[in-house]
Design a protein around this nucleic acid. Structure first.
Length: 166
DNA sequence: CCCTGATTCGC
DNA sequence: GCGAATCAGG
């Protein structure tokens, strides 16, 4: 099947309506999504609000070296005898200065409050003297307070917030 | 593994 | 011009 004027017109409409290439291909019939994408490019209409990765105009971070595998996410450290508080993880990242410890230097008695984005190199832990649970006094306050405060808003929100840590 | 668009390149 | 193969991502 070729690109008749009618089909091209249809393609333009559907594409600008925000349908994905595969959806358009399915609807037009007789073409694959690759064909649709190829045609779209040849027609010169490429930019569009894509539902898939509309994310950000951020720059492609130059990923120089991924020499050695970075240690994975911080493993939760078991806290056997803490019965009262079920070791809730910090509900969200908070903007603050990098901690003194890294994944490699985080010691047994150091505050394990994560600071920054675990997927990037700037990731640290607070590293101050551990006080309450796995955290220093200040972070323990922040860590445990939301869990109680949010009780009222229902478990779902909390569960959602915690999911990424499990 | 599902999906997204982008690019390449032989046809 | 066409689109499969491939790539780079979410």
């Amino acid at each position: 099947m070729g690109w008749t004027d009618e089909r091209v017109e249809n393609l333009k409409k559907l594409w600008q309506d925000g349908l994905s290439a595969s959806q358009i291909a399915k609807q037009l019939g007789g073409v694959t999504r690759n064909a649709v994408i190829g045609k779209v490019h040849r027609l010169g209409l490429s930019g569009r609000a894509t539902p898939s990765k509309p994310a950000r105009p951020v720059f492609k971070a130059p990923r120089p070296q991924r020499a050695v595998a970075q240690p994975a996410a911080p493993r939760r450290i078991a806290e056997p005898l803490v019965a009262q508080a079920p070791v809730p993880a910090p509900v969200r990242y908070i903007d603050e200065a990098p901690g003194s410890a890294t994944v490699l230097t985080l010691g047994a008695h150091m505050c394990k409050w994560p600071i920054g984005d675990p997927s990037t190199d700037g990731f640290t832990f607070c590293g101050r003297r551990q006080d309450d649970g796995p955290y220093c006094a200040e972070h323990a306050r922040v860590a445990y307070q939301p869990a109680q405060a949010k009780k009222r808003s229902g478990p779902n929100e909390l569960a959602r917030s915690l999911r990424r840590y499990i």
